[in-house]
């Protein structure tokens, strides 16, 4: 009796552990939290999975971590938004077939009463200067994500070093960061898509927008199969082709229109 239970337990464990091994028809896509949290990716993947009979596993992390995962060969594709890092990634031979597929833009959000009076200021650099000057609370991602990198680039351009009690880093995704900023009545830099999908849960307004420094393109890159032989190259290409197909573009263009009154992303190459 006891032996039987033992044997059953053993078989059970073997089936579970071995059954957990990844099947070939899975694609792993590492991407930024902004794309995942908005829900766009889910819509795209559901549509793609129907056609291609492939399951796409999404790992949502910041751009920096996604690139690290790709360098280690722990994913097949990355969908990220940090042009400088992307170029370096491809140049160093980790990635191939980089395609910019869509864009939106970054905005500066903050409490409605706008303590640093950045509304109406011309240029994002002066806006950041005003916040610094006023030592108005600013919440940064601080997680090496695409948004965080862009924010740091802007501070650098402005010749400012954000330091002091007014400047805080969350180390979390865009969504949680917005919630924290809202609770603390602070400014923050966010992509428009995440802001729109969180708008109802927070009390932050867009206080600065539309500067060419805030342009935010997203690219998809395939991990170089010459570096990591196990990469699911064929399926990866299929997914990229789907994203830049008319159908893929239509999904991107339409996504969020109904819910937010405006699209969250715009396909590139119309």
């Amino acid at each position: 009796m006891k032996k039987k239970i033992f044997l059953l337990g053993f078989i059970f464990i073997m089936v579970f552990t071995l059954g957990c091994k990844r099947k070939v028809s899975h694609l792993i896509l590492a991407t930024t939290t902004s794309v995942e949290n908005s829900g766009l990716l889910n819509t795209l993947i559901t549509s793609f999975e129907k056609e291609a009979k492939v399951k796409v596993d999404v790992i949502a992390c910041g751009t920096g971590k996604a690139i690290r995962l790709a360098e280690n060969g722990d994913c097949d594709l990355i969908l990220v938004h940090d042009p400088e890092a992307e170029k370096r990634f491809v140049r160093e031979g980790y990635g191939i077939d980089r395609r910019s597929i869509m864009y939106n833009d970054f905005v500066i959000v903050g409490p409605r009463d706008d303590p640093a009076k950045i509304k109406g200021i011309r240029g994002v650099i002066p806006a950041l200067s005003a916040i610094t000057h006023k030592k108005a609370s600013f919440i940064s991602r601080g997680d090496d994500s695409g948004t965080h990198k862009r924010e740091r680039m802007l501070w650098e351009r402005a010749g400012l070093i954000p330091e002091g009690e007014w400047y805080q880093e969350t180390g979390q995704g865009m969504g949680p960061t917005l919630i924290i900023a809202s609770q603390k009545r602070a400014y923050s830099l966010t992509d428009r898509a995440t802001y729109l999908s969180y708008k109802k849960k927070i009390t932050l307004d867009i206080l600065y927008e539309k500067d060419k420094l805030l342009y935010n393109p997203y690219s998809i890159i395939l991990v170089n199969p010459e570096r990591h032989a196990h990469i699911n190259y064929k399926r990866g290409i299929e997914f990229i082709d789907f994203l830049i197909s008319d159908k893929g573009k239509r999904i991107i263009r339409e996504f969020g229109k109904e819910k937010f009154g405006e699209p969250l992303f715009h396909p590139i190459g119309e």
């Binding site: 579970f16 071995l18 957990c20 091994k21 990844r22 792993i28 280690n72 060969g73 722990d74 196990h230």
Partner: peptide
């Protein structure tokens, strides 16, 4: 991780 000693098992990001 695929770079790690047990990478060939392909277990990362699985219930295993």
């Amino acid at each position: 991780s695929h770079r790690g000693p047990l990478g060939m098992l392909g277990l990362l990001y699985t219930p295993g």
